[in-house]
Write a protein that binds this DNA or RNA. Structure first.
Lengths: 242, 242
DNA sequence: CGACCATTTGATATGGATCAAGCGATGTGG
DNA sequence: CCACATCGCTTGATCCATATCAAATGGTCG
Protein backbone atom coordinates (compact mmCIF):
# COMPACT_ATOMS: atom_id res chain seq x y z
CA UNK A 1 0.00 0.00 0.00
CA UNK A 2 1.15 3.53 -0.75
CA UNK A 3 3.86 2.46 -3.16
CA UNK A 4 6.13 5.29 -4.15
CA UNK A 5 7.35 5.12 -7.67
CA UNK A 6 10.35 7.33 -7.92
CA UNK A 7 10.73 8.38 -11.47
CA UNK A 8 12.80 11.28 -12.55
CA UNK A 9 15.32 12.77 -10.23
CA UNK A 10 16.83 15.36 -12.47
CA UNK A 11 17.91 18.76 -11.32
CA UNK A 12 15.75 21.64 -12.37
CA UNK A 13 17.57 24.70 -13.59
CA UNK A 14 15.96 27.73 -12.03
CA UNK A 15 14.44 26.75 -8.77
CA UNK A 16 13.29 30.33 -8.98
CA UNK A 17 9.90 29.33 -10.16
CA UNK A 18 9.46 26.89 -7.34
CA UNK A 19 7.61 28.53 -4.55
CA UNK A 20 6.09 30.73 -7.20
CA UNK A 21 2.73 29.53 -5.99
CA UNK A 22 0.15 30.37 -8.62
CA UNK A 23 -1.72 32.20 -5.88
CA UNK A 24 -2.63 31.23 -2.40
CA UNK A 25 -5.37 28.79 -3.06
CA UNK A 26 -8.59 30.58 -2.24
CA UNK A 27 -10.76 28.65 0.12
CA UNK A 28 -14.41 28.99 -0.67
CA UNK A 29 -15.60 29.06 2.85
CA UNK A 30 -17.00 32.38 3.94
CA UNK A 31 -18.28 35.18 1.82
CA UNK A 32 -15.48 37.41 0.61
CA UNK A 33 -12.02 36.39 1.53
CA UNK A 34 -9.50 36.86 -1.13
CA UNK A 35 -6.18 38.00 0.06
CA UNK A 36 -3.62 39.79 -2.06
CA UNK A 37 -2.72 37.50 -4.95
CA UNK A 38 0.73 39.07 -4.67
CA UNK A 39 3.09 37.63 -7.24
CA UNK A 40 4.65 34.94 -5.09
CA UNK A 41 7.47 34.36 -7.51
CA UNK A 42 10.60 34.55 -5.49
CA UNK A 43 10.70 32.21 -2.54
CA UNK A 44 12.40 29.49 -4.49
CA UNK A 45 14.14 31.97 -6.68
CA UNK A 46 17.66 31.98 -5.36
CA UNK A 47 20.07 30.23 -7.71
CA UNK A 48 21.38 27.64 -5.29
CA UNK A 49 17.89 26.30 -4.61
CA UNK A 50 17.93 23.51 -7.10
CA UNK A 51 15.03 21.16 -7.04
CA UNK A 52 14.23 17.53 -7.59
CA UNK A 53 11.13 16.22 -9.30
CA UNK A 54 9.46 12.95 -8.35
CA UNK A 55 6.40 11.12 -9.50
CA UNK A 56 4.06 9.20 -7.27
CA UNK A 57 1.42 6.60 -8.01
CA UNK A 58 -2.15 6.92 -6.86
CA UNK A 59 -2.12 6.62 -3.05
CA UNK A 60 1.65 6.81 -3.00
CA UNK A 61 3.07 8.12 0.26
CA UNK A 62 5.04 11.33 -0.08
CA UNK A 63 5.93 11.52 3.57
CA UNK A 64 4.59 10.17 6.83
CA UNK A 65 3.79 11.71 10.16
CA UNK A 66 6.88 11.81 12.33
CA UNK A 67 9.33 11.64 9.45
CA UNK A 68 12.02 14.23 9.32
CA UNK A 69 10.91 17.17 7.19
CA UNK A 70 13.82 17.61 4.82
CA UNK A 71 11.97 18.99 1.85
CA UNK A 72 9.35 21.49 0.82
CA UNK A 73 7.04 20.30 -1.92
CA UNK A 74 5.10 21.73 -4.78
CA UNK A 75 2.49 20.01 -6.88
CA UNK A 76 3.38 20.08 -10.56
CA UNK A 77 0.57 17.82 -11.72
CA UNK A 78 -1.95 15.59 -9.99
CA UNK A 79 -3.28 16.16 -6.48
CA UNK A 80 -2.15 15.56 -2.92
CA UNK A 81 -3.86 15.10 0.43
CA UNK A 82 -2.30 15.74 3.82
CA UNK A 83 -3.91 13.93 6.73
CA UNK A 84 -3.66 12.43 10.15
CA UNK A 85 -5.08 9.14 11.41
CA UNK A 86 -6.36 8.98 14.99
CA UNK A 87 -5.59 5.96 17.11
CA UNK A 88 -9.04 4.49 16.48
CA UNK A 89 -8.66 4.71 12.74
CA UNK A 90 -10.60 7.88 11.98
CA UNK A 91 -8.77 9.93 9.40
CA UNK A 92 -8.88 13.66 8.94
CA UNK A 93 -7.77 15.20 5.71
CA UNK A 94 -6.28 18.52 6.42
CA UNK A 95 -5.98 19.94 2.95
CA UNK A 96 -5.96 19.09 -0.72
CA UNK A 97 -3.10 20.45 -2.83
CA UNK A 98 -3.51 21.02 -6.54
CA UNK A 99 -1.01 22.00 -9.25
CA UNK A 100 0.84 25.12 -8.18
CA UNK A 101 0.25 24.60 -4.46
CA UNK A 102 3.11 24.20 -2.01
CA UNK A 103 3.00 21.98 1.05
CA UNK A 104 5.13 20.24 3.62
CA UNK A 105 6.73 23.23 5.30
CA UNK A 106 6.02 23.20 9.01
CA UNK A 107 7.51 24.88 12.04
CA UNK A 108 9.22 21.84 13.45
CA UNK A 109 11.69 19.68 11.60
CA UNK A 110 9.41 16.69 11.71
CA UNK A 111 6.24 16.31 9.70
CA UNK A 112 3.20 16.34 11.94
CA UNK A 113 0.92 15.23 9.09
CA UNK A 114 1.24 12.65 6.35
CA UNK A 115 1.03 13.36 2.65
CA UNK A 116 -0.13 11.08 -0.16
CA UNK A 117 -0.77 11.44 -3.85
CA UNK A 118 -4.50 11.24 -4.55
CA UNK A 119 -3.91 10.37 -8.19
CA UNK A 120 -0.66 9.91 -10.04
CA UNK A 121 1.27 13.08 -9.36
CA UNK A 122 4.44 14.91 -10.20
CA UNK A 123 5.94 16.75 -7.28
CA UNK A 124 8.82 19.20 -7.25
CA UNK A 125 10.84 19.41 -4.05
CA UNK A 126 13.59 21.59 -2.66
CA UNK A 127 15.54 21.16 0.53
CA UNK A 128 13.89 22.74 3.51
CA UNK A 129 17.25 23.83 4.89
CA UNK A 130 18.01 25.60 1.62
CA UNK A 131 14.70 27.43 1.72
CA UNK A 132 15.19 28.48 5.30
CA UNK A 133 18.74 29.67 4.81
CA UNK A 134 17.80 31.45 1.60
CA UNK A 135 15.09 33.25 3.52
CA UNK A 136 17.70 34.26 6.04
CA UNK A 137 19.70 36.04 3.40
CA UNK A 138 16.99 37.23 1.07
CA UNK A 139 14.28 39.35 2.57
CA UNK A 140 11.96 38.80 -0.32
CA UNK A 141 12.20 35.04 0.05
CA UNK A 142 11.43 35.48 3.72
CA UNK A 143 8.40 37.56 2.86
CA UNK A 144 7.17 34.90 0.45
CA UNK A 145 7.65 32.27 3.09
CA UNK A 146 5.58 34.17 5.61
CA UNK A 147 2.97 34.99 3.04
CA UNK A 148 2.59 31.35 2.07
CA UNK A 149 2.31 30.24 5.67
CA UNK A 150 -0.14 33.00 6.52
CA UNK A 151 -2.26 31.91 3.56
CA UNK A 152 -2.29 28.34 4.80
CA UNK A 153 -3.18 29.59 8.27
CA UNK A 154 -6.17 31.33 6.79
CA UNK A 155 -7.19 28.15 5.01
CA UNK A 156 -6.75 26.05 8.12
CA UNK A 157 -8.95 28.40 10.15
CA UNK A 158 -11.61 28.33 7.51
CA UNK A 159 -11.41 24.58 7.42
CA UNK A 160 -12.04 24.54 11.15
CA UNK A 161 -14.98 26.85 10.63
CA UNK A 162 -16.37 24.42 8.10
CA UNK A 163 -16.42 21.64 10.64
CA UNK A 164 -19.10 23.21 12.79
CA UNK A 165 -21.55 23.53 9.92
CA UNK A 166 -24.28 21.16 8.72
CA UNK A 167 -23.62 18.46 6.17
CA UNK A 168 -25.28 20.45 3.40
CA UNK A 169 -23.25 23.51 4.21
CA UNK A 170 -20.02 21.57 4.28
CA UNK A 171 -20.64 19.92 0.96
CA UNK A 172 -21.70 23.21 -0.62
CA UNK A 173 -18.54 24.87 0.67
CA UNK A 174 -16.45 22.03 -0.66
CA UNK A 175 -17.96 22.25 -4.12
CA UNK A 176 -17.50 26.00 -4.28
CA UNK A 177 -13.92 25.73 -3.09
CA UNK A 178 -13.05 23.08 -5.63
CA UNK A 179 -14.85 24.89 -8.39
CA UNK A 180 -12.82 28.00 -7.66
CA UNK A 181 -9.54 26.18 -7.43
CA UNK A 182 -10.06 23.97 -10.48
CA UNK A 183 -11.85 26.66 -12.46
CA UNK A 184 -13.47 24.48 -15.11
CA UNK A 185 -16.11 27.00 -16.15
CA UNK A 186 -19.34 25.23 -15.27
CA UNK A 187 -18.37 21.78 -14.10
CA UNK A 188 -15.81 20.51 -11.61
CA UNK A 189 -13.74 17.40 -12.17
CA UNK A 190 -12.80 16.15 -8.74
CA UNK A 191 -9.49 14.35 -8.40
CA UNK A 192 -10.57 12.68 -5.16
CA UNK A 193 -13.12 10.03 -4.27
CA UNK A 194 -15.98 10.17 -1.80
CA UNK A 195 -13.96 8.85 1.12
CA UNK A 196 -11.46 11.68 0.74
CA UNK A 197 -14.24 14.23 0.58
CA UNK A 198 -15.84 12.71 3.66
CA UNK A 199 -12.59 12.77 5.61
CA UNK A 200 -11.99 16.36 4.61
CA UNK A 201 -15.46 17.45 5.65
CA UNK A 202 -15.66 15.40 8.81
CA UNK A 203 -18.60 13.38 7.51
CA UNK A 204 -19.13 9.78 6.48
CA UNK A 205 -19.02 8.69 2.89
CA UNK A 206 -22.73 7.89 3.05
CA UNK A 207 -23.65 11.36 4.23
CA UNK A 208 -21.57 12.95 1.50
CA UNK A 209 -23.25 10.78 -1.09
CA UNK A 210 -26.74 11.43 0.22
CA UNK A 211 -26.11 15.16 0.40
CA UNK A 212 -24.94 15.20 -3.19
CA UNK A 213 -28.04 13.41 -4.44
CA UNK A 214 -30.14 15.75 -2.34
CA UNK A 215 -28.49 18.74 -4.01
CA UNK A 216 -29.04 17.08 -7.35
CA UNK A 217 -32.74 16.55 -6.64
CA UNK A 218 -33.12 20.25 -5.99
CA UNK A 219 -31.36 21.01 -9.30
CA UNK A 220 -28.56 22.76 -7.45
CA UNK A 221 -25.94 20.51 -8.95
CA UNK A 222 -25.83 17.74 -11.52
CA UNK A 223 -23.69 14.64 -11.25
CA UNK A 224 -22.38 14.12 -14.77
CA UNK A 225 -20.34 11.25 -13.45
CA UNK A 226 -19.56 10.58 -9.81
CA UNK A 227 -16.35 12.58 -10.26
CA UNK A 228 -17.63 15.32 -12.53
CA UNK A 229 -20.14 17.70 -11.02
CA UNK A 230 -21.87 20.62 -12.69
CA UNK A 231 -22.83 23.49 -10.44
CA UNK A 232 -26.25 24.51 -11.73
CA UNK A 233 -27.16 27.01 -9.07
CA UNK A 234 -24.23 28.65 -7.44
CA UNK A 235 -26.34 31.17 -5.57
CA UNK A 236 -28.02 28.35 -3.67
CA UNK A 237 -24.62 26.89 -2.88
CA UNK A 238 -23.33 30.27 -1.75
CA UNK A 239 -26.33 30.80 0.43
CA UNK A 240 -25.75 27.40 2.03
CA UNK A 241 -22.17 28.42 2.55
CA UNK A 242 -23.26 31.13 4.97
CA UNK B 1 -22.02 45.94 24.76
CA UNK B 2 -18.33 45.40 24.18
CA UNK B 3 -17.27 48.67 25.71
CA UNK B 4 -13.65 49.48 25.13
CA UNK B 5 -12.01 51.27 27.97
CA UNK B 6 -8.90 52.87 26.67
CA UNK B 7 -6.57 53.35 29.56
CA UNK B 8 -2.93 53.98 29.18
CA UNK B 9 -1.52 54.98 25.88
CA UNK B 10 2.08 55.47 26.80
CA UNK B 11 4.95 54.51 24.60
CA UNK B 12 6.93 51.52 25.64
CA UNK B 13 10.66 51.86 25.48
CA UNK B 14 12.02 48.69 24.00
CA UNK B 15 9.40 47.24 21.74
CA UNK B 16 12.03 44.56 21.58
CA UNK B 17 10.20 42.45 24.05
CA UNK B 18 6.98 42.66 22.15
CA UNK B 19 6.69 39.74 19.90
CA UNK B 20 8.87 37.95 22.36
CA UNK B 21 6.13 35.38 22.68
CA UNK B 22 6.83 33.36 25.80
CA UNK B 23 6.69 30.31 23.54
CA UNK B 24 4.28 29.31 20.86
CA UNK B 25 1.37 28.26 22.97
CA UNK B 26 1.40 24.49 22.93
CA UNK B 27 -1.92 23.03 21.99
CA UNK B 28 -2.71 19.90 23.92
CA UNK B 29 -4.34 18.13 21.08
CA UNK B 30 -2.41 15.15 19.80
CA UNK B 31 0.21 13.16 21.62
CA UNK B 32 3.61 14.83 21.38
CA UNK B 33 3.74 18.08 19.55
CA UNK B 34 6.05 20.61 20.96
CA UNK B 35 7.85 22.65 18.46
CA UNK B 36 11.10 24.42 19.10
CA UNK B 37 10.48 26.93 21.89
CA UNK B 38 13.12 29.02 20.10
CA UNK B 39 13.68 32.28 21.92
CA UNK B 40 11.22 34.39 19.99
CA UNK B 41 12.67 37.61 21.34
CA UNK B 42 13.35 39.73 18.35
CA UNK B 43 10.35 40.32 16.16
CA UNK B 44 9.37 43.44 17.98
CA UNK B 45 12.92 44.23 18.83
CA UNK B 46 13.80 46.95 16.39
CA UNK B 47 14.03 50.35 18.05
CA UNK B 48 11.46 52.13 15.94
CA UNK B 49 8.78 49.64 16.85
CA UNK B 50 7.23 51.53 19.68
CA UNK B 51 4.09 50.16 21.17
CA UNK B 52 0.88 51.27 22.76
CA UNK B 53 -0.83 49.60 25.67
CA UNK B 54 -4.59 49.49 26.09
CA UNK B 55 -6.92 47.98 28.60
CA UNK B 56 -10.24 46.40 27.79
CA UNK B 57 -13.22 45.52 29.93
CA UNK B 58 -14.71 42.07 30.06
CA UNK B 59 -16.29 41.41 26.64
CA UNK B 60 -14.69 44.54 25.23
CA UNK B 61 -14.15 44.44 21.49
CA UNK B 62 -10.53 44.70 20.42
CA UNK B 63 -11.30 44.59 16.73
CA UNK B 64 -14.11 43.37 14.51
CA UNK B 65 -14.24 41.24 11.41
CA UNK B 66 -13.75 43.40 8.36
CA UNK B 67 -11.95 46.18 10.17
CA UNK B 68 -8.67 47.31 8.78
CA UNK B 69 -5.84 45.44 10.47
CA UNK B 70 -3.53 48.22 11.54
CA UNK B 71 -2.02 46.63 14.60
CA UNK B 72 -0.52 43.45 15.90
CA UNK B 73 -1.45 42.60 19.47
CA UNK B 74 0.02 40.89 22.44
CA UNK B 75 -1.71 39.90 25.63
CA UNK B 76 -0.04 41.40 28.67
CA UNK B 77 -2.64 40.31 31.18
CA UNK B 78 -6.10 38.81 30.95
CA UNK B 79 -7.34 36.67 28.09
CA UNK B 80 -8.66 37.15 24.59
CA UNK B 81 -10.88 35.19 22.20
CA UNK B 82 -10.92 35.50 18.44
CA UNK B 83 -14.08 34.35 16.74
CA UNK B 84 -16.45 34.55 13.86
CA UNK B 85 -20.26 34.58 13.90
CA UNK B 86 -22.11 32.80 11.11
CA UNK B 87 -25.15 34.41 9.55
CA UNK B 88 -27.52 32.27 11.65
CA UNK B 89 -25.86 33.28 14.89
CA UNK B 90 -23.63 30.32 15.54
CA UNK B 91 -20.28 31.48 16.85
CA UNK B 92 -16.97 29.74 16.50
CA UNK B 93 -14.11 30.68 18.73
CA UNK B 94 -10.95 30.23 16.86
CA UNK B 95 -8.42 30.56 19.60
CA UNK B 96 -7.85 31.77 23.13
CA UNK B 97 -4.88 34.03 23.78
CA UNK B 98 -3.25 34.20 27.17
CA UNK B 99 -0.53 36.46 28.56
CA UNK B 100 2.47 36.36 26.29
CA UNK B 101 0.52 35.31 23.20
CA UNK B 102 0.42 37.43 20.06
CA UNK B 103 -2.58 37.70 17.77
CA UNK B 104 -4.18 39.79 15.08
CA UNK B 105 -1.58 39.43 12.36
CA UNK B 106 -3.16 38.06 9.21
CA UNK B 107 -2.19 37.90 5.57
CA UNK B 108 -4.66 40.49 4.33
CA UNK B 109 -4.91 44.00 5.64
CA UNK B 110 -8.39 43.41 6.99
CA UNK B 111 -9.21 41.30 10.00
CA UNK B 112 -11.11 38.20 9.00
CA UNK B 113 -11.94 37.38 12.62
CA UNK B 114 -13.08 39.44 15.57
CA UNK B 115 -11.27 39.73 18.88
CA UNK B 116 -12.69 40.40 22.35
CA UNK B 117 -11.33 40.47 25.85
CA UNK B 118 -12.69 37.50 27.83
CA UNK B 119 -11.96 39.20 31.13
CA UNK B 120 -10.46 42.59 31.81
CA UNK B 121 -7.26 42.61 29.82
CA UNK B 122 -4.17 44.66 29.10
CA UNK B 123 -3.06 44.45 25.51
CA UNK B 124 0.13 45.77 23.95
CA UNK B 125 -0.03 46.72 20.29
CA UNK B 126 2.39 47.78 17.59
CA UNK B 127 1.66 48.97 14.08
CA UNK B 128 1.33 46.18 11.60
CA UNK B 129 3.08 48.25 8.95
CA UNK B 130 6.02 48.78 11.27
CA UNK B 131 6.31 45.06 11.92
CA UNK B 132 6.14 44.24 8.25
CA UNK B 133 8.68 46.84 7.22
CA UNK B 134 10.98 45.88 10.09
CA UNK B 135 10.82 42.30 8.87
CA UNK B 136 11.78 43.53 5.43
CA UNK B 137 14.99 44.98 6.78
CA UNK B 138 15.81 42.61 9.58
CA UNK B 139 16.05 38.95 8.68
CA UNK B 140 15.73 37.86 12.25
CA UNK B 141 12.47 39.74 12.65
CA UNK B 142 11.27 38.08 9.47
CA UNK B 143 12.17 34.68 10.85
CA UNK B 144 10.29 35.41 14.05
CA UNK B 145 7.30 36.48 12.06
CA UNK B 146 7.26 33.27 10.07
CA UNK B 147 7.87 31.21 13.15
CA UNK B 148 4.94 32.79 14.95
CA UNK B 149 2.62 32.29 12.02
CA UNK B 150 3.76 28.71 11.49
CA UNK B 151 3.07 28.04 15.15
CA UNK B 152 -0.44 29.41 14.82
CA UNK B 153 -0.92 27.31 11.69
CA UNK B 154 -0.03 24.27 13.70
CA UNK B 155 -2.53 25.26 16.35
CA UNK B 156 -5.26 25.95 13.82
CA UNK B 157 -4.79 22.52 12.24
CA UNK B 158 -4.93 20.85 15.59
CA UNK B 159 -8.06 22.79 16.40
CA UNK B 160 -9.63 21.46 13.22
CA UNK B 161 -8.58 17.97 14.22
CA UNK B 162 -10.31 18.47 17.53
CA UNK B 163 -13.60 19.17 15.83
CA UNK B 164 -14.02 15.68 14.45
CA UNK B 165 -13.69 14.06 17.85
CA UNK B 166 -16.34 13.07 20.39
CA UNK B 167 -17.53 15.46 23.09
CA UNK B 168 -15.49 13.69 25.76
CA UNK B 169 -12.37 13.83 23.65
CA UNK B 170 -12.84 17.50 22.90
CA UNK B 171 -13.33 18.44 26.52
CA UNK B 172 -10.37 16.33 27.60
CA UNK B 173 -8.19 17.98 24.97
CA UNK B 174 -9.35 21.39 26.09
CA UNK B 175 -8.56 20.72 29.71
CA UNK B 176 -5.11 19.39 28.90
CA UNK B 177 -4.39 22.34 26.63
CA UNK B 178 -5.45 24.86 29.23
CA UNK B 179 -3.63 23.07 31.97
CA UNK B 180 -0.44 23.20 29.93
CA UNK B 181 -0.83 26.82 28.99
CA UNK B 182 -1.88 28.05 32.42
CA UNK B 183 0.41 25.67 34.27
CA UNK B 184 -1.14 25.85 37.74
CA UNK B 185 0.36 22.62 39.00
CA UNK B 186 -2.67 20.50 39.71
CA UNK B 187 -5.67 22.70 39.05
CA UNK B 188 -6.63 24.97 36.19
CA UNK B 189 -8.30 28.32 36.65
CA UNK B 190 -10.20 28.99 33.48
CA UNK B 191 -10.60 32.59 32.41
CA UNK B 192 -13.57 31.76 30.18
CA UNK B 193 -17.10 30.61 30.83
CA UNK B 194 -18.96 27.59 29.52
CA UNK B 195 -20.31 29.32 26.44
CA UNK B 196 -16.81 30.21 25.31
CA UNK B 197 -15.62 26.67 25.86
CA UNK B 198 -18.61 25.35 23.94
CA UNK B 199 -18.00 27.69 21.01
CA UNK B 200 -14.34 26.75 20.94
CA UNK B 201 -15.09 23.03 20.97
CA UNK B 202 -18.02 23.14 18.58
CA UNK B 203 -20.42 21.85 21.23
CA UNK B 204 -23.34 23.33 23.16
CA UNK B 205 -23.02 24.67 26.62
CA UNK B 206 -25.16 21.83 27.91
CA UNK B 207 -22.94 19.18 26.40
CA UNK B 208 -19.83 20.79 27.86
CA UNK B 209 -21.45 20.91 31.26
CA UNK B 210 -22.67 17.32 31.12
CA UNK B 211 -19.31 16.08 29.92
CA UNK B 212 -17.56 17.82 32.79
CA UNK B 213 -19.87 16.27 35.38
CA UNK B 214 -19.39 12.93 33.70
CA UNK B 215 -15.62 13.31 34.01
CA UNK B 216 -16.09 14.31 37.60
CA UNK B 217 -18.22 11.24 38.33
CA UNK B 218 -15.40 9.04 37.07
CA UNK B 219 -12.93 10.90 39.31
CA UNK B 220 -10.99 12.10 36.30
CA UNK B 221 -11.41 15.71 37.25
CA UNK B 222 -12.85 17.66 40.14
CA UNK B 223 -14.79 20.87 39.86
CA UNK B 224 -13.51 22.97 42.73
CA UNK B 225 -15.63 25.81 41.45
CA UNK B 226 -17.17 26.00 38.00
CA UNK B 227 -14.09 27.92 36.86
CA UNK B 228 -11.44 26.03 38.78
CA UNK B 229 -10.90 22.44 37.77
CA UNK B 230 -8.47 19.95 39.24
CA UNK B 231 -7.15 17.29 36.89
CA UNK B 232 -7.14 14.17 39.04
CA UNK B 233 -6.26 11.64 36.38
CA UNK B 234 -4.31 13.04 33.51
CA UNK B 235 -3.60 9.66 31.99
CA UNK B 236 -7.32 9.13 31.45
CA UNK B 237 -7.55 12.56 29.87
CA UNK B 238 -4.55 11.85 27.66
CA UNK B 239 -6.02 8.55 26.57
CA UNK B 240 -9.25 10.33 25.67
CA UNK B 241 -7.19 12.81 23.75
CA UNK B 242 -6.12 10.09 21.33
C1' DC C 1 -18.69 -11.77 -19.17
C1' DG C 2 -17.35 -11.57 -14.52
C1' DA C 3 -14.77 -9.71 -10.60
C1' DC C 4 -13.81 -5.83 -8.15
C1' DC C 5 -14.22 -1.45 -6.26
C1' DA C 6 -16.65 2.93 -5.69
C1' DT C 7 -20.90 4.87 -5.03
C1' DT C 8 -25.66 5.03 -3.89
C1' DT C 9 -29.66 3.77 -1.32
C1' DG C 10 -32.21 1.81 2.61
C1' DA C 11 -33.19 0.76 7.64
C1' DT C 12 -32.01 1.65 12.16
C1' DA C 13 -29.30 3.51 16.09
C1' DT C 14 -27.29 7.19 18.68
C1' DG C 15 -24.63 11.24 20.32
C1' DG C 16 -25.34 15.61 20.92
C1' DA C 17 -28.78 19.44 20.11
C1' DT C 18 -32.81 21.51 21.65
C1' DC C 19 -36.33 22.78 24.82
C1' DA C 20 -37.31 23.45 29.58
C1' DA C 21 -36.65 23.61 34.44
C1' DG C 22 -33.99 23.87 38.55
C1' DC C 23 -30.15 25.55 41.37
C1' DG C 24 -26.46 28.06 43.36
C1' DA C 25 -23.65 31.96 43.51
C1' DT C 26 -23.29 37.03 43.39
C1' DG C 27 -25.02 41.49 43.88
C1' DT C 28 -28.63 45.13 45.01
C1' DG C 29 -31.96 47.66 47.38
C1' DG C 30 -34.89 48.00 51.21
C1' DC D 1 -28.75 41.68 57.18
C1' DC D 2 -31.96 39.63 54.54
C1' DA D 3 -35.43 39.16 50.51
C1' DC D 4 -35.05 39.08 45.78
C1' DA D 5 -33.41 39.56 41.08
C1' DT D 6 -29.92 38.10 37.95
C1' DC D 7 -26.67 35.36 35.80
C1' DG D 8 -24.13 31.32 34.87
C1' DC D 9 -24.20 26.57 35.36
C1' DT D 10 -26.33 22.06 35.80
C1' DT D 11 -29.80 18.60 35.11
C1' DG D 12 -33.80 16.45 32.83
C1' DA D 13 -36.79 15.03 28.75
C1' DT D 14 -37.18 14.70 24.05
C1' DC D 15 -35.82 15.24 19.21
C1' DC D 16 -33.12 15.03 15.13
C1' DA D 17 -29.06 14.99 12.01
C1' DT D 18 -25.76 12.11 11.03
C1' DA D 19 -23.52 7.64 11.98
C1' DT D 20 -23.80 2.86 11.50
C1' DC D 21 -25.00 -1.43 9.49
C1' DA D 22 -26.46 -3.68 5.34
C1' DA D 23 -27.49 -4.31 0.64
C1' DA D 24 -28.05 -2.97 -4.15
C1' DT D 25 -26.25 -0.67 -8.17
C1' DG D 26 -22.96 0.93 -11.43
C1' DG D 27 -18.67 1.56 -13.63
C1' DT D 28 -14.01 -0.29 -14.96
C1' DC D 29 -10.73 -3.46 -16.34
C1' DG D 30 -8.90 -7.98 -17.34
Amino acid sequence: MHTVTTAQERRTVGAAAFLAAKALAPVGVPSERRVSPAATHILFGSPELTGITMTYDRNGEIYGEGESADYVYKVVSGAVRTYKVLNDGRRQINAFYLPGDCFGLELGDEHTWSAEAIVGATIAMVKRSAVLSASKRDGEVARQLWSMTAGQLDEARNHALLLIKSAQERVAAFLLEMSQRLAHSDSVELPMGRQDIADYLGLTIETVSRTLTQLENTRTIELLTSRVIALRNRSVLSRLNG
